[in-house]
Design a protein around this nucleic acid. Sequence first.
DNA 1: GTTCCGCATGAATCGATAG
DNA 2: ACTATCGATTCATGCGGAA
Lengths: 292, 292
Amino acid sequence: MEIRTDIKLGDCKKILKTLPDNSVDLIFTSPPYADQRKSTYGGIHPDKYVAWFLPISEELLRVLKPSGTFVLNIKEKVVKGERSTYVMELIIAMRKQGWLWTEEFIWHKKNAFPGKWSNRFRDSWERLLQFNKNKKFNMYQEEVMVPMGDWAKTRLKNLSETDKKRDESKVGSGFGKNISNWLDRKMAYPTNVLHLATECNNKNHSAAFPEALPEWFIKLFTRQEDVVLDPFMGSGTTNFVAQRMNRNSIGIEILPEYYNMVKEQLVPTQLILLESEGEYEATEHKGHHAVR
Amino acid sequence: MEIRTDIKLGDCKKILKTLPDNSVDLIFTSPPYADQRKSTYGGIHPDKYVAWFLPISEELLRVLKPSGTFVLNIKEKVVKGERSTYVMELIIAMRKQGWLWTEEFIWHKKNAFPGKWSNRFRDSWERLLQFNKNKKFNMYQEEVMVPMGDWAKTRLKNLSETDKKRDESKVGSGFGKNISNWLDRKMAYPTNVLHLATECNNKNHSAAFPEALPEWFIKLFTRQEDVVLDPFMGSGTTNFVAQRMNRNSIGIEILPEYYNMVKEQLVPTQLILLESEGEYEATEHKGHHAVR
DNA sequence: GTTCCGCATGAATCGATAG
DNA sequence: ACTATCGATTCATGCGGAA
């Protein structure tokens, strides 16, 4: 199995046109918010945000497989004491464009940015808007099951310490149906609220979102060797996670600094993969899986 | 100090016209969601929801004091596999009406409704939309400070009726000093995510939201003897909490069953207040505080 | 008095069946 | 083809009865 991590330098509005129709299983991205990152995208004014984004989302609609999902991480900023409405307008406009607005997940940030204002509290949540092309789409719910709440209190008492550990390790590896049957009563499906911490201490750069965020959606909406796309790659979190999880991925970034940084970090990983390839090649002969 | 709890039977669209301009400090309400609670309320079609609500919000805009706040608890339902957009459209329409959309709080429900579907998880959050007339409004942030760390466990945990009474008695008897000590180092301002459980096991009726929800916003946006309004009173949760917290309140309910139920529950409380009035009248002579 | 278990019950949603 | 109704699914919570 060869996993490709394809990163591209340039404006995603143009680069996306080079991608074939119906070729991506999951789009996970966090676009520049309005009036932020002024230096890179020229600072999109909140009033012009929808008009700026629609041509891009049109391309995304084209490249996404009918069974695929688009997860958009976004949060409106405060302008003159008010929340902007461009996210609301974007949802309405994207529906007219042909997208289905399936769900809105909430990312509840455990460690919100500190601060104090006279007329508002700290903002500790962001939207994760799920869009689809069809009412039917791929969703692998078992992959993101969580331990039941009561389980810890009632069942754990009777179990030995080894039982607990064994259980957890199985969950982490995320095998298939055997385990889900075994776990039938001890695991529960999650809700549409994700309670994750932000990663503030990344090595070189500050990631816009923690790795656990794309990881959760990649688990939920893709299988191994599927294709993940992030048209606003930034520091490449989505792509690194996808690679680690054996998913092909495409990343597009307009800023050379970010692009080069991701590129340099990708190389050693690929080398490691090539080294280990020999070992596995002997026992398993998996077909070449191209991105397109 | 005499606290009035004024409940009115009828359509809030009409009743609201009888209230004077700029007379309410906080509006906290949870209107019937679109096409939900059909058996009790009519059930407004999602497509007609905005048109139905705008005349009401126009009256609310009129009766609210310039320093006041309107908190709207709402959540869109799923129609044919998609989230409806009427809440988005309502926000946009209310801004055109003159409201400022100051903030969106998230109510993260600990006990979400159960269920399993192939294409979505359980919905465990609702919106609490904060609207204002002016950029400057009354906000008493210190009142809702929480112990650092686990605020859900201690402060906002759902309390049984006996626990509440015990808690109140503590507050009444020199509990203040302990709190002020805690305030020094161990209290923090909350964020815009509220983590509460729904109260599904009330005695006579099912409350749409837990008492802790209006309590939090009443603390945050009003002081004692201020006026709280709930134009969709329902089981009267907002008004009971307001009364307990020494706030005047107005409740409007269209269904006689609910109206009468609230009325009956209010009487004993008022009698208790009248009984104790004699004792306090001798030492303190507080002025009559009318609702309007 | 405690602690513990059983049980009913929610602003739900989907898919099948029925008219 | 459209709407209306119904059953199945599922989990945190708090009350009541029991040990």
